[in-house]
Design a protein around this nucleic acid. Sequence first.
DNA 1: GATCTATCAGTGATATATCAAAGGCTCGAA
DNA 2: TTCGAGCCTTTGATATATCACTGATAGATC
Lengths: 233, 233
Amino acid sequence: MAAKKPAGRKDAQTALARAVFEGLRDEITGGKLRPGQVLSRRQVASRYGTSYIPVIEAMARLESAGLIDVEARQVARVRTITLETIQDDYVLREAYETQAVRLACEAATPGEIEDLYRLADAVDEYVAAGGTKRTGDKEGPLLHWQFHRRIAEVSRCRALVRELERIELLRRLQANWYFAPEVPDLPRCHALLVDAIESRNPAEADASMRAHVRSGLEKELLAYRMNVTPGTR
Amino acid sequence: MAAKKPAGRKDAQTALARAVFEGLRDEITGGKLRPGQVLSRRQVASRYGTSYIPVIEAMARLESAGLIDVEARQVARVRTITLETIQDDYVLREAYETQAVRLACEAATPGEIEDLYRLADAVDEYVAAGGTKRTGDKEGPLLHWQFHRRIAEVSRCRALVRELERIELLRRLQANWYFAPEVPDLPRCHALLVDAIESRNPAEADASMRAHVRSGLEKELLAYRMNVTPGTR
DNA sequence: GATCTATCAGTGATATATCAAAGGCTCGAA
DNA sequence: TTCGAGCCTTTGATATATCACTGATAGATC
C-alpha cells in the first residue's frame, strides 16, 4: 500500500488518482515513455504502488487530455505522432493563440504589455544567442511557453489558458522524439507580437500570431520528416 | 447486476462505464438534471444499476468534458451557468468556428459548398419562418448545429470537430435553462457564410463567422439576464 | 433553554476479489 | 520441422468491502 497522507489541503482527497495522473503525465511529456508504448493498468498500478482503481480514473483523464489513445480492447498507448496529429494540434493551437491575442488587444493593461515585452525580449535574446536547439535544452522552450501562456492569461479567458496548456503538453510529448533542426526565427519575432497587441488592432495581431504559429508548424513538420519514425512500436 | 451484453463490437468492452457516461451526458444536456445539482457517485451507481467503479470513470470523463464540476471534497455538480462560463464558451466557440471557416475556405470542394448551401438555406428558411424560439423547439437548433458542424467537417480537422462538439454539449445544457428571447437574425445570415467560404477568402470568412458567433453570444447574454438565475443551488 | 458532544448516516477513495477474453506458449502429432 | 489444440498468463471490467471524513442529529450538560 502507498503511504497514507493526511492530505491537509481540501482538494487532496483524491490523492492516488491524482498522483497517478500527474505521474504518467510527466512521464509521457518528459519522454520517459515512448509514443505507442502500451500502458497496462495493472502494471501502472503496481509501479505506483496503488490498486487498480485510481489508475482507471487517471487513464480516463489522460485520454481526455489526448496524452494516451485507447484503442480496441481498451489497450492504452502513449499517443503516437503522425502527420495528422501534428497538423491537428497546430490547427487548435492557431485557433487558441489567435483568439488569445485578439482578446489581449482589448484587455491588456499597460503593465501587462510591459510584462509581455519583458518576456518577449527574453525569448528573442535567447533565440538570437543561438541558445535554442541545444539537445536537451529546456530553458528556451520554457521561456517561449511562458510568453505564449502569458498572452492567454492576459486575454482574461481561463478556458483559453486551459486549452492552450493541454496543447502544450502534447507539444512536449512530441518534442522528446523529434528534434527540430536549426531554423532561424525572424529577429525580434516575439516583441513584434507584443507590438501588435499594443497597437490594439486585433486583426493585425491575429495575422502576426497566425504567421508565428505557422512558422512553428513548418519547423515541426521539418523535424518530423527529418527523423525516422521512432516509437512506432 | 445490470444485464450483461456480449458486446459484439470491439469497442464495447467498457460497456457500463460508457453507458453511465452517455446516460449522464444525455440527462445533463437534456435538461433532466439541474445545473448545480449534486451527483453522488453511489446514487448514480444504484440508479444505473451498476457498481461504483464505472461511475468513477464516467465522472472523470464528464469533468473533462466540462459537463460537471468537481469542487472541494470531490462533490460533483452539474455545471452551473454564470456570466463567465457563457463568455468563456463563446470565446472557445469563436476560436473554433473562425478557424474552421478559414480552413474550409481552402479545403472545401464544390460539392461540399453545395451541401453547405443546402444546410444554410434550410436554417435560413427555418429562421425566416419564425420557427425558432418556440418553447421546447428542437428542430431549429438541430439544423443550426448541423450546419456549423458541417463547416468543421469540411475543414478536414477532426480535432476541430471534436472540440466543437464538446462546446455544443455545453450549449445544450444551457439551452434548457435559459430561453432566448426573440431576436431576429439577418436574413440569409447563414448562406452569407457559405458565400464567404466560396469566395475562398479566409480573412473575410473569419470576419463573417466572428460576427455571427458574436451575435449568438449577445443572444445568450440577453437570455441570461432575462432569466432569474435558476439552478444556482 | 442553549450549547456542546457523541454517534450515525452518507459519501468518496481505494483495496481486493472475481470473471471473461485474448495472446502466447508448450507439447504432441503429422 | 511445422502446425494445431489446450493450458496458462496477462489484462480489462466490475462487484464488493473497508476506511476516513463530513455533516447532521440526538442526547447530555450547564
